[in-house]
Design a protein around this nucleic acid. Structure first.
Lengths: 143, 143
DNA sequence: TATTGTTATACTCTATAACTATA
DNA sequence: TATAGTTATAGAGTATAACAATA
């Protein structure tokens, strides 16, 4: 096996990783302009408008403990961006829902996060389509 | 007009973003096994063995304030993973260098972070090569 | 007994502002 | 005057453990 070059999948992943870490400053600015901390922005982005979610699902998505989500949601709720609602089927569960204000902030943040960085925006039309198609196959038909 | 050509790039970027956020738990586990906080892991990954770096460069890379790096580096230095060295050319500057122990931890973390997730590892050989080639063009010849 | 969410605790991260030592 | 790094401060994030309510 070739020792000097890694497998194409590994190199591709490393390149994607490098692209992402290069965007940290931009991500920070997007959160900052919305007056959100990074975890708060992550929470908002994970909430779909009109589809409430148990707190524990958010903890899974953010890869953190349940006890953590309590504080993050407390602050979002204090700003009126998110609501806690009871779940009729299991009264231990609290469902999180975006408020109208929260949906607006989320839409703005989502829009800006979705803008590709120059490295991707500058690809040829053919390369962009190819990249999209391969990633669609990688992530599965539901994406 | 612009919409039809920028759409594939935008979708590709969103797919990459989804792929990354889906890996949060794994990133957390890698940091955890090395007994590093996420910022500490980020710092270690940004330091190249044998290539000392000014603290302010690390602050740029981590997209945080200089004052922050002080604490992060304090803890890495207390564990013997990193060293502060004077810069002869500008005595205000402190250069950060990995110790041998730090280089070992960094290599382990770097190796694990570089392993592609199933979605990428499961691509066909042709798709993997295509993905790599497009990303090489996107990120430039130096990558 | 197990699970969901909260609270208490201790530590880390974070930005801001003020400080120092250089430049 | 400006810059690199530190310190002080206040607030947010974080895991752990213990707890209440519910399953």
């Amino acid at each position: 096996m070739a020792a000097s070059t890694s497998a194409p999948a590994t190199e591709a992943w490393r390149l994607m990783h490098r692209l992402f870490t290069s965007q940290r400053r931009r991500f920070w600015e997007i959160a900052n302009e919305a007056e959100l901390s990074p975890p708060q922005m992550g929470a908002l982005l994970h909430l779909d408008p009109g589809r409430p979610l148990p707190m524990s699902d958010l903890a899974d998505a953010l890869a953190c403990d349940n006890s953590n989500v309590t504080g993050i949601v407390d602050r979002l709720e204090a700003r009126g961006l998110v609501e806690r609602r009871p779940d009729e089927r299991d009264r231990r569960v609290k469902m999180l829902a975006l408020t109208d204000a929260g949906a607006e902030v989320r839409a703005r943040v989502h829009e800006r996060m979705g803008q590709p960085p120059p490295a991707i925006a500058g690809l040829s039309a053919a390369d962009a389509r190819t990249l999209r198609d391969v990633l669609r196959r990688a992530l599965g038909p539901e994406n």
